[in-house]
Computed example of a mutant assay.
Amino acid sequence: MTPTARHTPALRADGEGALPATADRWLWQLASRSTPEDFPLPPETVGEQLKDTVRISADWSALVLRQGAAFLGHRPDTGAGDFFEFGALHSRTVYLDALLLGSLQRDHIDELTDELSEVFNSSRLARRVATLERNIAVFRSTYWRQHLTAHGAANDLLLAFQNQHRLPARFDEILAEAADYSRLVQTQESQQISGALGVLTILGLPLGTALSILQVLDDHSTAHLLIVLALSVAATAAALTTRYGRLVLSSLRGGGGKA
């Protein structure tokens, strides 16, 4: 909105003085699409609500809220050829790009949050966590930018949008939660590898011992070999019923063993 000379609540005093408090209140009403009758702004929170106001220049300011964004002039609009025409062009191009990038970031963070909540909805935890980590990496390399230009108000608008939607905090929470899931998958895989090694030990130790005894005795009897194999199977079955055997089988299943 570009004011005229009669819109004194939005204008700087004498054209160069300080802004009246009503200017930012008006800016907040434009950005929130509300009026004092719809939503009276509590005096105790005015500073917090207006902390992300961007002073683009002495001539105009911008404010980004969750409901929208507004640009307000602080000197009278002189009409055709006025600087505000250039400002309007900026608000519809580079400044709009900053807000659209923020919207893309918010949408992708919403999608990643949904993925996090569905990680345990499938038995293939490792695959889902790997997919989640890949999506996080793609988002970070493609969309997660906090600077749109080398300098200027577009960066401030993007940061204001991110702050309004808590995007940095939400993304940090996503990274922390995904790291926890990754550690859980690594722990389960380590348990399964340990369990597989334990099974090989339980299966191989009795059989290897029995075959070594036959070899030392130079016994080539088929009957004795079958007896040794049967005894090895029995010893293995007995070992699997012990606490260690139950822990090994539990590790293979990815669960915790019982004492």
Rank of each mutant, 00 (worst) to 15 (best):
H147C: 05
T149H: 00
H147I: 04
Q29H: 11
W28Y: 14
D14M: 00
L65N: 10
E37T: 13
E118W: 06
F39N: 11
P40M: 07
N121P: 02
A237F: 01
P3S: 02
H151E: 14
R106S: 10
I174L: 09
Q67C: 10
S221R: 01
Q164I: 09
Y181C: 04
L207S: 09
P168F: 07
W26A: 03
M1Q: 01
L157K: 06
L30N: 05
Q192A: 13
I213Q: 04
L247P: 00
Q49H: 12
L175V: 15
L116I: 14
L231W: 01
P36N: 05
R183I: 10
M1C: 02
L159S: 12
R127S: 13
V54F: 00
E115V: 03
L247K: 08
N135G: 00
R124K: 10
L225F: 11
G255K: 02
A5F: 00
L27S: 08
L226E: 10
A62W: 03
H90G: 14
H108G: 08
L63H: 11
Y244E: 10
R170F: 06
T142S: 08
E115Q: 14
A153Q: 05
A196N: 09
P43F: 04
S232Q: 03
L158T: 12
V233S: 07
A223L: 11
S61G: 05
D172P: 01
T236E: 09
L11M: 02
A31K: 05
P20Y: 06
A62Q: 10
D110V: 13
F161M: 10
G87F: 15
A58P: 04
L207N: 05
S91Q: 15
E37F: 15
T78Q: 14
T131A: 09
S251D: 15
L175F: 04
S61V: 12
S123E: 15
A150R: 03
L41T: 10
L72T: 15
I193F: 00
D156V: 07
G79M: 13
L148I: 11
H220P: 02
L116D: 07
T142E: 08
A13R: 08
E189L: 13
P20K: 04
A58Q: 10
L50T: 13
R75C: 13
I174T: 06
D82H: 15
G17P: 03
G152D: 07
V233Q: 02
A176N: 08
R92L: 14
Q67P: 06
G68M: 10
S212Q: 09
Q105P: 09
L158E: 08
N163I: 04
L89Y: 15
A21D: 13
Q67V: 14
A88L: 15
A80M: 13
E16W: 00
Q105G: 11
